[in-house]
């Protein structure tokens, strides 16, 4: 078995890399794939928190690299899906504790046993980023419809293009607010795609449920009703190779706005 190694990166912090990683991972596991999530954000780890696995971590990525434990010992199984595993980052160390080759060795090892290896990349373009992309052959660039995030995403895409190992990269637009796009206070999805000239893999609407899910330590994909959950599950299916139309996050509530939308569509 050769698994796919996908790095989830963004450049800017706080756009939802870790949230996307946890949710896409959980969604893929829900669909029956064996998935391992690797947190490479050494010193500022958060992925364990989103999955609610903080209290189960004994060994970390750094312990594996430094030979204090076997790779299998460091994998923490998810509470809900046993086919979802986490390789946590060390909290008491920093990014220089591992190097790119060591991460590549680990992802190559994990490829044999898992369908998907999702690498959570730290913010920035320094050592942490280099470590995270080392073993990956695909990338998902997370961005929000804000100028600063889009500019950083552009920089990241440039760096990814320069890497020979990265065969494909897709854009994940996060925290989209349809109402703000309507009132022209936020860049539309098309604007962002035009600026970055990059294929989309998903559009995630802003959802207050994300905050609740982080507090509870359960990925939002477990909640079937939420719109963000639906969007993340669609992203997982697109990664699997299905072709699904993008979710209509701009769900008009009344007939007037529906007509408006129709007319706007005709004008374009």
């Amino acid at each position: 078995m050769t698994g796919r190694v996908i790095v989830i990166t963004s450049g800017k912090g706080g756009v939802g890399k870790t949230t996307s990683n946890a949710n896409i991972g959980a969604a893929l596991a829900k669909n029956g794939h064996s998935v391992v999530l690797i947190d490479t954000d050494i010193g500022l780890r958060n992925l364990d928190l989103l999955l609610g696995l903080e209290n189960r971590i004994v060994y970390t990525l750094v312990d594996v690299v430094e030979g204090r434990c076997k790779l299998k010992q460091a994998l923490v199984k998810d509470k809900k899906y046993p086919n979802l595993c986490l390789l946590a980052a060390a909290q008491t160390r920093d990014k220089t504790s591992v190097n790119a080759e060591q991460v590549k060795e680990i992802t190559d090892e994990l490829k044999k046993d898992f369908d998907f290896i999702l690498v959570d990349c730290p913010a920035g373009i320094e050592q942490g980023f280099q470590n995270a992309v080392a073993g990956a052959s695909e990338a998902i660039v997370v961005t929000t419809p804000e100028m600063s995030a889009v500019r950083d995403a552009d920089r990241i895409i440039g760096l990814l293009e320069a890497k020979e190992e990265i065969k494909s990269y897709k854009l994940l637009l996060n925290r989209v607010r349809p109402s703000m796009i309507k009132s022209k206070d936020m860049m539309s999805v098309e604007d962002v795609v035009n600026i970055l000239s990059c294929d989309l893999i998903g559009i995630i609407p802003e959802d207050t449920g994300i905050i609740t899910s982080t507090n509870k330590g359960e990925p939002i994909v477990h909640d079937d009703k939420s719109l963000a959950s639906k969007a993340y599950r669609n992203v997982a299916r697109r990664i699997e190779g299905e072709e699904i139309p993008f979710l209509d996050i701009d769900e008009p509530q009344d007939i007037i706005s529906k007509i408006k939308k129709f007319v706007m569509g005709l004008k374009r």
Partner: peptide, 19 residues
């Protein structure tokens, strides 16, 4: 604590929210 370890024994905090 998140975890209490004494000598070779491990034990963890009961599952619950992060807050």
């Amino acid at each position: 604590p998140i975890q209490i370890r004494i000598a070779g024994l491990f034990s963890r905090k009961p599952d619950g929210g992060n807050v």
